[in-house]
């Protein structure tokens, strides 16, 4: 028994060492979160689905590569990319200066403003819907809007997903006035809005709009102005390792082609109900 266990240990140790992968982009492993509908999500059949899953498959065809799409929890998605668990991240990730310090990004394939959603019964639901403010191009106006929002959110709890630009936005501008909470997934902050634990949450409008049309989102409403630029970065792109500049070129060309021939628009309308193609 004892020796048999010893032998099993040796086998396990060798097996753990795993297999090495060569660098050749005919096979690309892509990670997505699988919990950010309709960008990417897991359906009742256990399959990954969504705008980005379709887009990734289209890009792979353009790059003449066979792709494997895997699900990976959001809070570990960048470290695991660096550790080489996969080669690209296509998971609604905004291109920000902070992330650029550690990873590389392709051209943006989508651009969606950030918006606040609250319960229809909340006093905040009365805040009128406003246009978009860009934190880079129209800083003064955007900050005036934030100040108004800040007064409305004073003393209230508000959430966003952990390590997102939305959470960064809340912590930059609202930390001293509101109770900012971070959630592992967007679905968890939705549960807490419905339960009344938090007043509202910030996420991309591309997340809220489709949700509000579904029975699960019937109690929610998007309020106030939307924001882009600044802490929100320059649109949503594919995350890549800094070392893989050749792969970045492949992605850039594929994305530019998909934007030019209207594939991104077609997929966006199919999944979001509106176009989210960024200006190229």
């Amino acid at each position: 028994m004892f020796y048999r266990l010893l032998a099993a240990g040796c086998v396990a140790a060798v097996a753990l060492a795993g297999a090495a992968e060569a660098k050749d982009w005919s096979k690309i492993k892509i990670a997505t979160e699988g919990a950010y509908a309709p960008w990417n999500f897991t359906n009742a059949a256990g399959k990954l689905e969504g705008f980005e899953v379709d887009l990734a498959n289209d890009l792979c065809k353009r790059m003449k590569a066979t792709c494997e799409i895997v699900a990976q929890d959001w809070d570990g998605i960048i470290p695991a990319l660096q550790a080489g668990k996969y080669d690209a991240i296509i998971a609604g990730m905004s291109i920000t200066a902070k992330r650029k310090e550690v990873i590389n990004f392709s051209l943006p394939y989508a651009s969606t403003p950030a918006a606040l959603a609250v319960l229809k019964t909340s006093p905040l639901a009365k805040i009128p819907v406003d246009k978009n403010y860009d934190l880079d191009k129209n800083k003064a106006d955007a900050e005036k809007q934030i100040a108004t929002l800040k007064a409305a959110l004073k003393g209230k709890a508000i959430g966003a997903q952990v390590s997102t630009t939305h959470l960064n936005f809340l912590e930059t501008y609202f930390k001293d006035a509101a109770d900012v909470r971070s959630y592992k997934t967007t679905e968890q902050h939705d549960l807490d809005i419905t339960a009344g634990r938090i007043e509202g949450a910030y996420a991309s409008i591309g997340y809220w709009k489709p949700l509000l049309g579904k029975p699960e989102g019937k109690d929610l409403v998007v309020v106030g102005p939307t924001f882009t630029g600044g802490v929100f970065g320059a649109g949503v792109g594919a995350g890549l390792r800094k070392a893989d500049d050749d792969l970045r070129k492949l992605f850039d060309d594929a994305i530019a082609a998909a934007a030019a021939d209207g594939t991104i628009k077609k997929l966006a309308v199919q999944w979001f109900g509106f176009d989210i193609t960024p200006p190229m």
Partner: peptide
């Protein structure tokens, strides 16, 4: 938390998509 689809992860996915 590592994304392996075992009971807990599957329950979280289900809870999220069906509320």
């Amino acid at each position: 938390v590592t994304g392996l689809v075992e009971i807990m992860r599957q329950a979280t996915i289900g809870a999220g998509s069906t509320k």
